[in-house]
C-alpha cells in the first residue's frame, strides 16, 4: 500500500512537471487563424493526456526497477501473482472512456475548423511542380503571392496540374492535399497580420523542398489597396507583353524560369530572346519565335544544354495568341 501511495504521488508530480515543462518550451508556432484555435485547444488536452499517461507507466516502471531490484546474492523469485481481472477490466474500460472523449472532442474540433462562412471570399489556387499560383477571379488578378484579408474567411479552391501537392501554412495549422483531377477546398480565417509561407507538404518531386510561396495577411485596408493595385496592373496590361507576364504567372512558368538571370530549375528568361542557345545534342539555335514556340509546346524536342533530358518542363498546349504574348513579354526581358 505504501508503495502505491508513493508511486501515486510521484506520478502526479512527474505528470505536472512534464506538462508544464512542455508548455513552457512552447510547442506550436504562432497561432494565426481562427481554425488554429480549436486545434490548439485540443492539442493542449492531448499534451496533458500524454504527460499523464507517460508518467503513469514510466514512474511505476522505474520505481519497480529501483525498489524491487534483486539484491546482490539473492536468488529467489518474486511474488506469485498471476493477474487480477478487475484491474484488467479497469484499465480496459477507463481508457475506453478517455478515448471516446478524445474522439468526441476531435470531431467537435474538426467541425470548428470546417465551419463554413457563406460570405467567404473565393480564391483559386493552382499547384504544379514546383510553384503555387493564386487567382482572384472577381478581379482578374493572378499572383504568385497569396494576399489574405484579416478576420475574413476565404475558401481556396485548389487544383493540381500534375502530381499531388499539399497546401500548408504552419501558422494556420490546417493542411489540405491538392489532387490532380479534382478540386479540393481549404477554408481559413486569418487572425494575425504577418508574412507567412505556404509550404508544399506532399513530396512532389525533386524540388519539393522549394515549393513555397509567400502568404501575406493584411489588414482589410491594406488588402483592399493591394487588390486595387493589382487590378489596375491587370487592367493596364492589356498589351501583349503585359498579357504575357500575367500568363507566365498563371501557368507557373516563373517557378522554374527567372527573369533576372539566375538559374532555377529551368534556364533564365533574361536576355533569352534572340540569344544563341546551346542544346544538349551539341548544336545551337537562335532563340527566335519558332524556337520558343516549339520549346513551349514540346519541351522535349530540343533540350537546352545543362538541363536534364528528357526535359522536366511539362508540355503546354497554348493558343497562338498566348504564345505571341509570351514572345512579346520575353522580348522585354533584357
Amino acid at each position: 500500500m505504501q508503495h502505491i501511495v508513493i508511486v501515486g504521488i510521484l506520478v502526479i508530480v512527474m505528470a505536472v512537471l512534464t506538462y508544464f515543462g512542455l508548455d513552457s518550451i512552447g510547442l506550436m508556432p504562432v497561432e494565426a487563424s481562427a481554425q488554429a484555435v480549436s486545434i490548439d485547444w485540443l492539442w493542449n488536452w492531448q499534451v496533458i493526456a500524454m504527460s499523464f499517461l507517460f508518467a503513469l507507466i514510466v514512474v511505476p516502471l522505474v520505481y519497480s526497477l529501483v525498489v524491487f531490484r534483486r539484491k546482490k546474492g539473492e536468488t529467489g523469485d518474486g511474488e506469485h501473482i498471476e493477474g487480477n481481472t478487475s484491474l484488467e477490466i479497469a484499465w480496459t474500460v477507463l481508457p475506453l472512456f478517455a478515448v471516446l472523449a478524445f474522439a468526441y472532442m476531435g470531431a467537435y474540433s474538426l467541425g470548428e475548423t470546417n465551419r463554413v462562412d457563406p460570405d467567404a471570399i473565393e480564391i483559386r489556387v493552382k499547384a504544379q511542380q514546383f510553384a503555387w499560383t493564386f487567382e482572384y477571379p472577381e478581379y482578374g488578378i493572378v499572383s504568385t503571392e497569396l494576399h489574405l484579408p484579416l478576420n475574413q474567411q476565404v475558401v481556396l479552391k485548389m487544383e493540381s496540374a500534375d502530381v499531388i501537392h499539399s497546401f500548408w501554412v504552419p501558422e494556420f495549422r490546417v493542411k489540405q492535399d491538392v489532387v490532380p483531377g479534382r478540386v479540393t477546398e481549404y477554408r481559413i480565417t486569418p487572425t494575425l497580420v504577418g508574412d507567412y509561407k505556404v509550404r508544399c507538404a506532399e513530396l512532389c518531386g525533386t524540388s519539393h523542398a522549394y515549393m513555397e510561396a509567400g502568404v501575406i495577411v493584411d489588414t482589410k485596408g491594406d488588402y483592399a489597396a493591394w487588390i486595387a493595385e493589382q487590378a489596375a496592373i491587370a487592367a493596364a496590361s492589356q498589351t501583349p507583353e503585359g498579357q504575357g507576364q500575367i500568363l507566365s504567372v498563371k501557368y507557373g512558368c516563373l517557378g522554374c524560369h527567372s527573369i533576372d538571370g539566375s538559374k532555377l530549375t529551368g534556364p533564365t528568361w533574361f536576355g533569352l530572346y534572340g540569344s544563341n542557345v546551346e542544346l544538349d545534342n551539341g548544336t545551337s539555335v537562335v532563340a527566335d519565335d519558332a524556337f520558343i514556340k516549339e520549346s513551349i509546346l514540346d519541351p522535349n524536342a530540343s533540350v537546352v544544354a545543362g538541363f536534364p533530358s528528357p526535359s522536366v518542363m511539362p508540355p503546354y498546349t497554348l493558343t497562338d495568341e498566348e504564345i505571341a504574348n509570351f514572345i512579346a513579354y520575353l522580348k522585354t526581358l533584357k
Partner: peptide, 17 residues
C-alpha cells in the same frame, strides 16, 4: 502516446507529413 494526436483528425491536419 504520440499516436492519438495523429489520429485526432483536426490535429493531424497540422501534423501530417
Amino acid at each position: 502516446l504520440t499516436g492519438p494526436p495523429n489520429a485526432t483528425v483536426s490535429i493531424d491536419l497540422h501534423l501530417h507529413d
